[in-house]
Every structure is written in C-alpha cells, then in structure tokens.
C-alpha cells in the first residue's frame, strides 16, 4: 500500500477533447474525472453525478462511440477523444433524438435525474443492436438505475425506437 501522502500537483494538464462535435481545450488537474470536466469546466450539467462510483449510470456519456461511466474516467487519459453527451443528442435545429421523443411519448421518467444517462445509454444500445427483445433491453440497460422505477416505460420507449 503506497502511503506517500506528500503534497504534489497541481500540475495542470492540457486536455483537448471534442465534445458534441466541438473541440474544447481544457486545463485540468490529473485527478479530474471526465464527468467533473464536463459539468464544472465546460458547464455541461446534463450528465449527472449520482453515485460517483460507476454504480448508477447517471453519468453515462458516449466516449469514442462507446457508452461509459464518465465518473470513472480520468479526463487526462482521454486527450483527443470524442464525447457525446445528452446535450448533443438532439439535432442542431433542436429536433429531439427519436429516443428522446419516445421517452416523452412513453412517460419514461418521473424525477428525470437518471434520464440523461438513460438516454445516452439507450442511444448507444440502439447503435449496438442489443435491443431486439424486452429481456435483451433490460439486460443491456442494467447499468442505469432509476429510483422512480420508470423501468417499464424506459423499456417500452427503447423497444419502440428499436422496432422502427
């Protein structure tokens, strides 16, 4: 167990990351997570901090085409990457992503706190092609918790978009 607790840092690192199609240059301490960089440095507060331990999925973003828990990613390790957050799901003219529209149609949320993570996870799931049956949607969405229990409606919303 390394226990060298001598002070070190801040040593800010230059971290260019493309966020929702826009290249952003950030100066970050090495211990800044991607979630904190998005929320605190870029002001993109759509991605939510739920548990901050990779257990709830509220921070889910799409990193280089893959859904990940942004709270467990050190931003400095993703220099040059592309991130898609809930703010980047709608078209530039504001037209909602089909899954966002389906969430509204199916009333797939109550408090809405987990919704950005559910949407990013769901969009990635649709691209992965693991949404062929309700069982499959449930299994492949297991990383996104919903304390309000909107699960049946979330499964229905994803299922509807998948079946189109």
């Amino acid at each position: 167990m390394p226990d060298d607790l001598s002070p070190r840092g801040p040593d800010l690192l230059s971290v260019p990351i493309t966020v929702n199609g826009q290249e952003r240059h950030m100066r970050l301490a090495p211990w800044t997570t991607l979630l904190d960089a998005l929320r605190d440095t870029l002001g993109l507060s759509g991605s939510k901090k739920g548990c901050d331990h990779g257990q709830c999925g509220a921070c889910t973003v799409i990193l280089d085409g893959r859904r990940v828990n942004a709270c467990l990613v050190l931003a400095a390790s993703k220099e040059g990457s592309e991130v898609r957050t809930v703010e980047g799901l709608a078209a530039p003219d504001g037209t909602l992503h089909p899954l966002q529209q389906a969430f509204i149609a199916h009333d797939a949320f109550q408090c809405g706190y987990c919704t950005p993570g559910q949407l990013c996870s769901g969009v990635a799931l649709l691209e992965e092609g693991h949404a062929k049956t309700p069982d499959e949607i449930r299994e492949w969405m297991s990383g996104n918790l919903c304390r309000c229990g909107a699960y049946p409606n979330i499964v229905a919303a994803i299922g509807e978009v998948a079946s189109r």
């Binding site: 070190r8 997570t33 467990l72």
Partner: peptide
C-alpha cells in the same frame, strides 16, 4: 480502464503518488 482503480482512489483505499496511463 480505471473502473476499479479510480473507484478505489475515490474511496482513498488506493493512494498512488503517480498514475501511469
């Protein structure tokens, strides 16, 4: 991947002086 290491660092169970990515 960091899924375990970063989590353990948040819990202060892992306290590395240096991280080699």
């Amino acid at each position: 991947g960091g899924t375990n290491l970063v989590d353990l660092m948040k819990y202060d169970v892992e306290r590395p002086a240096a991280v080699l990515d």
